[in-house]
C-alpha cells in the first residue's frame, strides 16, 4: 500500500511534469522540492508550482537489454537523460523509436504512457516518457 499512496502523491509531477520554481532565485526543480537547496530558509513559502513544457533534448542515453519484469515487452528499451527547456534534467524512457534513431542532442517531447502495472489485479502506474520530435 506504500507504493499506492506514493504514486498517488506524486501524480501531479508524474502525469503533468509539475515542477517547483524558487521565488527567491528562479531556479526550477524537478521533482518538485519544498525548499530550494541554494536559498534554503530564504525560499520557505516561496516555492511555486509550474507546469513544464515537456520539451527538451537528449543529454545522454543507454539501451537496456536486461529489463525488469514490467518492461520485458519493450526490450531493448531506451533510457535517457533529458534536459528540459526550462532547466531541469530528468531520466525518462524514449519510446516509439529504435536505439539507432536516438542520439545526444536530438529534440524530444513528453508523452503520457503506462509506466508499470502491479501484476494482473493491481494498480496501473502512468507517467511521462519521451518521443523524438
Amino acid at each position: 500500500m506504500g507504493e499506492l499512496s506514493r504514486f498517488w502523491r506524486e501524480s501531479d509531477h508524474r502525469y503533468r511534469l509539475v515542477a517547483h520554481k524558487c521565488g527567491n532565485c528562479d531556479r526550477v526543480y524537478f521533482p518538485p522540492r519544498d525548499v530550494c537547496p541554494t536559498c534554503h530558509r530564504e525560499s520557505v513559502g516561496k516555492m511555486e508550482p509550474i507546469d513544464l513544457s515537456g520539451k527538451g533534448e537528449v543529454v545522454s542515453y543507454t539501451v537496456v537489454h536486461e529489463a525488469p519484469t514490467p518492461f520485458t515487452r519493450q526490450k531493448p528499451y531506451i533510457l535517457a537523460i533529458i534536459k528540459l527547456d526550462e532547466g531541469p534534467s530528468l531520466t525518462g524512457q524514449i519510446v516509439d523509436s529504435d536505439p539507432e534513431e536516438v542520439d545526444m542532442g536530438k529534440r524530444v517531447h513528453s508523452v503520457f504512457r503506462k509506466v508499470a502495472e502491479d501484476g494482473k489485479s493491481g494498480i496501473i502506474q502512468y507517467g511521462y516518457k519521451f518521443v523524438l520530435d
Partner: peptide, 9 residues
C-alpha cells in the same frame, strides 16, 4: 498500440 498504451494514454 504499443505495450505502454491504453485507453487512458
Amino acid at each position: 498500440p504499443s505495450p505502454d498504451e491504453d485507453v487512458a494514454t
